[in-house]
């Protein structure tokens, strides 16, 4: 799956996901109330050093900021007009530093590890009748079906153009949603056929029935 993850071992990759997330949370708590321009220039230098320590391709990940630049510019201008440029620079620098630090965790942590690190947060779901496993299943389903839905859209767009329609019309959204939902009915059926979201084992156990596990018959 596509991810912002930088697939190359570095010192930062070796640190545990939980530690990185914890440090990130600590940084945001500490930095949010600050308003010294000098401090944030220092933080920016520090953040850039972190990226540079990953190597050349690490430093280029700073570009993940690119889609936000225009927005930051607008915020700066608004501050310039309403509250003063000094304040504007502080706010925008703080945003840039926070985004850089957060992305640093994202590019040095595999999605699996990130998920394992946050799974304990979902334990309370058990009392609501869900389970952390359901979350993992749902995440897997999304990753699996994004490409499938793209293919569905491609097929619709093709047959629409074959009958004289324009490329990428909003008219395709209704049939796209329809086909996706039809597809989801089939997938739900297939999931149930394999024991459902709770699994054969859990379902039987909660019904007070025993489940015999047989090892794989290797050598068949």
């Amino acid at each position: 799956m596509i991810s912002v993850y930088l697939d190359r071992p570095t010192w930062a990759h070796r640190r545990s996901a939980g530690m990185k997330l914890g440090l990130l949370a600590l940084c945001s708590v500490l930095l949010l109330p600050q308003d010294s321009l000098i401090l944030f220039i220092g933080c920016l230098a520090g953040a850039l050093t972190l990226y540079a320590s990953l190597g050349r391709d690490g430093l280029s990940q700073v570009l993940l900021l690119k889609p936000m630049i225009v927005f930051f510019g607008i915020i700066l201008v608004f501050h310039g007009l309403f509250t003063g440029w000094q304040e504007g620079f502080v706010v925008v620098l703080r945003l840039i530093v926070m985004v850089l630090l957060a992305n640093f965790v994202s590019i040095t942590t595999r999605m699996d590890d990130m998920m394992d690190a946050v799974m304990p947060l979902f334990v309370p779901l058990k009392w609501l009748g869900g389970s952390p496993r359901t979350i993992a299943l749902a995440v897997a389903l999304v990753l699996r079906f994004v490409p499938v839905l793209m293919t569905v859209y491609g097929g619709l767009s093709e047959s629409y153009r074959a009958r004289g329609g324009k490329q990428g019309s909003w008219r395709l959204i209704a049939p796209f949603a329809l086909q996706s939902l039809r597809l989801s009915e089939n997938v739900a059926e297939a999931l149930s056929a394999r024991g459902g979201a709770r699994g054969v084992f859990e379902q039987n156990r909660s019904a007070g029935r025993n489940v015999r596990l047989t090892g794989l018959q290797v050598g068949k």
Partner: peptide, 19 residues
């Protein structure tokens, strides 16, 4: 979790630190 699924290929924890 890091999937760049927001419009424009945006993703990762950074978007939750943005404005």
């Amino acid at each position: 979790l890091g999937a760049p699924l927001l419009a424009g290929g945006n993703g990762g924890l950074g978007v939750f630190a943005g404005a």
